[in-house]
Design a protein around this nucleic acid. Structure first.
Lengths: 218, 218
DNA sequence: AATAATTTTTAGGCTTATCTAAAAATTATT
DNA sequence: AATAATTTTTAGATAAGCCTAAAAATTATT
């Protein structure tokens, strides 16, 4: 059984490993967790003793298979709770993160499986991210950044990269959401902005925005 | 904002105060929380600094109004989560306590009110205990122990005193539950047991059991 | 390759919440 | 009332998780 703090480290290492494929540096963990490198070193030693990570001084850490499974389980809980909050308690997608951060640490053999069943075994969380199954398998969904679309290519919005409430509220304001059809009508070389049609509505979106929306090409 | 540990002390003092009406002793808190008297003294000092309790050395503690409101809020969360677990996630009434102990510490301005609404503003938890409202008001329900019924008196089962899973599972086995009609057919002086009719079924129950079932006379 | 810059680790402290053991105060008993 | 028993508090430790500052190792730059 892991403490909340340990779980937060495990989850963070998992997320960082998903982008970097090298050993995860002490500093990057510290940055993500808003803590100090020295605290990370301490915790890493503990997680290494518990065989959650492989650690060699000055070389960053890697999750063991056990560590990966543990991480997937925490993420499963986090995302299922997010679905619950949005579907059942009328939270909007920019409000769920903070609460799910707390709920993901609840320990109960029965709770999560019942919640999963209650929610109808959802495959994605409110931001389009896949929900790991009981065994910790996370179906890797094929998705691309909207920014990779060429002129006249089309796709469906399937996720977001930035999940900050600022960005999510911005998307709400623009009426951009999951499941919507997106077509790139033109790309503007001057500022790398995009002229797009989203759900039938024409609009211009910045390069930054285009780099934070995931689509599935069609 | 209080730590989980502080919240547990506050809740415990509240529950003890509900039975004893005198100042709550250090030892009684220690016993309930499975901790040592010295730890209780430490925590009491802290809660006193935070104006949650009134404390004079060697004289036990009393909750302030602020403390009572805080306690009611924790209990509100605990009981609403219990309703959720039973009504929505198919937990039985003997399985909910442990998980609710964890869930009651989740901090979110929005979560509990939405949960309350989602559950249809329940008035009682699965054990028949009243759920405090937002303001911390706890409707005091008029109830008596089954043991106080005389021969030929009738009532409805509205709660339990002992909420241990052993007792609750025993009640399930006997098919005794909330809302059921109970009539005392006879009292046996030899062992102070009761011959009762519960939901149309005649049975004998021990004095101990009769002292752990709450009824409303009718 | 030597030096500079950066990253990581170590050393030593702090806070929270716990503990044991001993001292102090209160309550009960003779 | 004096002594015994009990309760409560104090004193001093411990563990988890964090911190700052300094040392050590690694990486980058000249």
């Amino acid at each position: 059984m892991f403490s909340q703090s340990e779980e937060n480290y495990i989850k963070t290492i998992y997320h960082l490993a998903a982008i970097s494929d090298k050993g995860i540096s002490t500093n990057s963990i510290a940055k993500k967790l808003n803590t100090k490198a020295s605290s990370v070193t301490d915790m890493i030693k503990k997680l290494s003793d518990k065989e959650v990570v492989v650690y060699k001084k000055y070389q960053g850490v890697t999750l063991t298979d056990f560590g990966k499974k543990t991480a997937a389980n925490i993420i499963r809980k986090h995302r299922l709770w997010e679905v619950f909050l949005v579907e059942k308690l009328d939270f909007s997608w920019d409000e769920v993160h903070e609460v799910a951060e707390q709920l993901e640490h609840i320990k109960s053999p029965k709770l999560i499986d019942e919640l999963d069943s209650f929610l109808g075994y959802p495959k994605r969380d409110p931001h389009g991210d896949p929900i790991p199954d009981k065994e910790g398998n996370l179906p890797q969904i094929q998705k691309s950044l909207l920014a990779t679309l060429e002129k006249n290519e089309k796709g469906v919005c399937v996720g977001v990269n930035d999940t900050s409430s600022e960005f999510l509220r911005f998307l709400d304001k623009q009426e951009i959401g999951l499941g919507q059809d997106i077509e790139v009508l033109d790309k503007e070389p001057f500022d790398d902005s995009y002229l797009v049609k989203i759900n039938g509505k024409e609009m211009t979106i910045s390069n930054k925005v285009a780099n934070n929306i995931y689509i599935q090409k069609n």
